[in-house]
């Protein structure tokens, strides 16, 4: 019985550690996805001149999960036409925040990009895209560094914490 409890505690805390580590890993991945999405959004806008809603819809089909849902909700909101692009962007960003592992600084960069969306001409827009991309690059670099540093730490800390708890409680 004691052994069972000990196993439970160790498993749970190890799980928590792994979840935290996965969070870090996911963040870099999602940042990369976001970068890719914005690049393709730029391509849509600059080369094929598709409207924003349509472009976002296409982009949402090219990238994996959390980022794609962000773009699809954004394009849906635009197509319904019930609010401005910035409002729709903010709203879908809020839902992205709940479902992704991105941190506030990453979201700020994306929000900044959304503020300029659909307000300026193509050239300005392109500049904006470049700025955002470099910002995201920076975030990604930071995230990957943090991942490298902390991923192992979270994993081992989770396991060791569970071990400590069982040793003390036994």
């Amino acid at each position: 019985m004691k052994l069972l409890g000990a196993i439970f505690i160790i498993c749970a805390s190890t799980g928590i550690g792994f979840a935290l580590a996965r969070n870090l890993k996911e963040r870099t991945k999602q940042l990369r996805d976001m970068k890719q999405a914005i690049t393709s959004l730029e391509a849509e806008m600059v080369y094929t001149m598709t409207p924003l809603a349509e472009a976002c819809h296409r982009v949402s089909q090219q990238v994996p999960s959390p980022v794609s849902t962000f773009f699809s909700t954004f394009s849906d909101a635009l197509q319904k036409g019930e609010s401005s692009a910035y409002q729709a962007w903010t709203k879908s960003l809020a839902s992205l925040k709940a479902h992704s592992c991105l941190q506030q600084s990453d979201l700020d960069v994306i929000l900044q990009f959304g503020a300029s969306l659909g307000q300026q001409d193509l050239e300005q827009q392109q500049k904006q895209v470049k700025l955002t991309l470099s910002n995201i690059d920076r975030q990604e670099l930071e995230a990957s560094e943090k991942q490298k540093r902390s991923e192992n730490m979270y994993k081992s800390l989770g396991f060791l914490g569970g071990l400590l708890m069982t040793i003390i409680l036994i």
């Binding site: 192992n152 730490m153 081992s156 800390l157 060791l160 914490g161 071990l163 400590l164 040793i167």
Partner: peptide
Amino acid sequence: VVAMIHTVL
């Protein structure tokens, strides 16, 4: 265990 945690942290 505490020593290990200490080292990791």
